[in-house]
Design a protein around this nucleic acid. Structure first.
Length: 292
DNA sequence: CACTTGACCTGTCCGC
DNA sequence: TGCGGACAGGTCAAGT
């Protein structure tokens, strides 16, 4: 799915487009992904205005004037695409992955009083959306358990090391992907940051030195920050709020670069499976034994 | 409790 | 061209 940088890119796009808009209609027929009753949607969404669009971990939060919030997860293939008037008409850059909407992946359509639309598309239907009172959002199990935001100012390397070491007997990659350890890291940025710190993803946490973990902290913050700057990674489906691709994949060092040379040493990058996920490594830079 | 694996879906790609 | 299987950015529940 979209990981932290992709969700943040969607958020920053939506927060420029949505606040102040008034919801005129909500079209949905997806009990599994959007299980709220039509009556609740009618009462707490129709006529409400959008107050804010926030992000926590990989979750998007769309706050409404009714003190209700739409809590949304894009999972692997979810997309939020806004379609307005002339600003998306003829002449805009042809880097959109999305054609005419709605299409066969459209699960929810929100129409605003000015005639613009917000589409929730999700090919694989793993994503979801829930309408609930804003005050109840922090009480969700996920939010009670989720770890700190890795890019927040008060998140230190000491916090990072302590939290990772709670999972000492698992692989460093599985620990990075564990949302209760740190929020927002997924498969792309786990591989990218581990390459940056020269740590093999299968190394047990307990076998990675504090110095290496400190380096990993820096590399992780670096790749997440760079990815936000580049508008995220479009591997296949991901698009921002305007339906456009992100460009981080042009800057990726190992992710989806198997059989290409490592940009640091020239060794051919390998693909394997770690923590149940496709994993990209440089066999020279990232030794299972060297952790110092 | 800690950790790993399979399931959830649809679509695409690759080998036969 | 068709078919089966593996795989895809995430997270849970169920298993060991």
């Amino acid at each position: 799915m979209p990981e932290l940088p992709e969700v943040e890119t969607v958020r920053s796009g939506l927060v420029k487009l949505l606040p102040g808009k008034i919801i005129a209609s909500v079209n949905f027929d997806w009990p599994k992904g959007f299980p709220n009753a039509q009556t609740d949607v009618d009462v707490f969404m129709i006529g409400a205005s959008i107050k804010d669009v926030r992000r926590r971990a990989k979750v998007l939060l769309i706050d409404l004037s009714t003190s209700y919030t739409l809590v949304c997860h894009l999972k692997m293939t979810g997309q939020f695409v806004f379609r307005g008037g002339e600003e998306f008409g003829a002449g805009h850059p042809n880097d959109s992955l999305i054609g005419v909407l709605p299409d066969k992946s459209t699960r929810v359509i929100i129409e605003f009083s000015d005639g613009t639309h917000l589409y929730f598309n999700d090919q694989r239907k793993f994503g979801w959306m829930r309408l609930m009172p804003s005050v109840q959002v922090p009480e969700l199990d996920f939010f009670k358990k989720v770890g700190p935001e890795p890019l927040s100012d008060d998140f230190t390397s000491k916090d990072f090391i302590q939290r990772l070491q709670r999972r000492k007997n698992t692989s460093i990659k599985a620990a990075l992907l564990d949302q209760t350890v740190i929020a927002g890291v997924g498969n792309i940025y786990a591989d990218e940051s581990l390459w940056g710190a020269k740590i093999h993803p299968a190394t047990k946490v307990t076998n990675v030195s504090d110095a290496k973990l400190k380096l990993l902290y820096s590399e992780l913050r670096y790749v997440l920050g760079l990815a936000i700057e580049k508008g995220g990674s479009t591997n296949k489906n991901y698009v921002n709020a305007e339906g456009k691709r992100g460009s981080y994949m042009d800057f990726a060092r190992v992710f989806r670069r198997e059989n290409q040379p490592c940009p640091r040493c020239g060794t051919i990058i390998e693909k394997s499976r770690v923590a149940g996920r496709g994993t990209h490594t440089c066999p020279t830079c990232q030794s299972l034994r060297i952790t110092k």
